[in-house]
Amino acid sequence: MTDESTVIELKNLTKVYQNGVEFRALDNANLRIEKGEFVAIVGPSGSGKSTLMHLIGLLDTPSSGTLLIDGKDVTKMSDKERSGMRNRILGFVFQYHHLLPDFTALENVMMPLLIAGKSREKAKNVAEELLEKVGLEGRMDHRPGELSGGQNQRVAIARALSCSPAIVLGDEPTGNLDTKSGDMIYELLRQLNREYNQTFIVVTHNDDLASKADKIIRLVDGKITVR
């Protein structure tokens, strides 16, 4: 019944944290995201935005409900299968760039490809191409400590895209940047989305940016409102 164009499907997805008190971070969420969509997730802090991202990103497991990614039920997968999916189908951009500090920009972008088992040669070619695309052709051999916040975030985007993931997840990817760099990064994401027809899901606090998305998902107290 899942049609071809649906890339993510949530059915009654619930995440409950039991930290003394029961906290329903995500409450019976139902959602369908199509291939190539640019989706913005908005909502006040504590509304479950990050929980939703982590569940879709296979970094966390739901308490109940099902989550289909690419038509596959990911809730029952082993660690190996889940890490394989994270590697091949998902790309992450975090609020902070989270690059590996001991590796150069190029090596950071190559890393997911090496994890995927690609040859160094292949990984290097792809990484160089992506770094050029994000405008860092002259900074490939710099380590994160030698780059600005905006530059590092662009490296992080290149890294997220390196395995040509079907889904790119951004957890406030522009949250730590000044408005100008933030807008630039956002434009870059939008442009890549159009170019590669990848699905983008971005958590943001910025209504301005959210308004440019194809779909806005508003979360309040763990419940979804699609607009």
């Binding site: 990103g57 970094l59 660690d79 190996k80 890490s83 394989g84 999916m85 994270r86 590697n87 091949r88 998902l90 992450f92 989270h98 690059l99 590996l100 890393m111 997911p112 994890i115 995927a116 890294r159 395995c163």
Partner: peptide, 8 residues
């Protein structure tokens, strides 16, 4: 981060 990138 390594885990997010798909390291098992």
């Amino acid at each position: 981060i390594l885990k997010a990138m798909g390291t098992s």
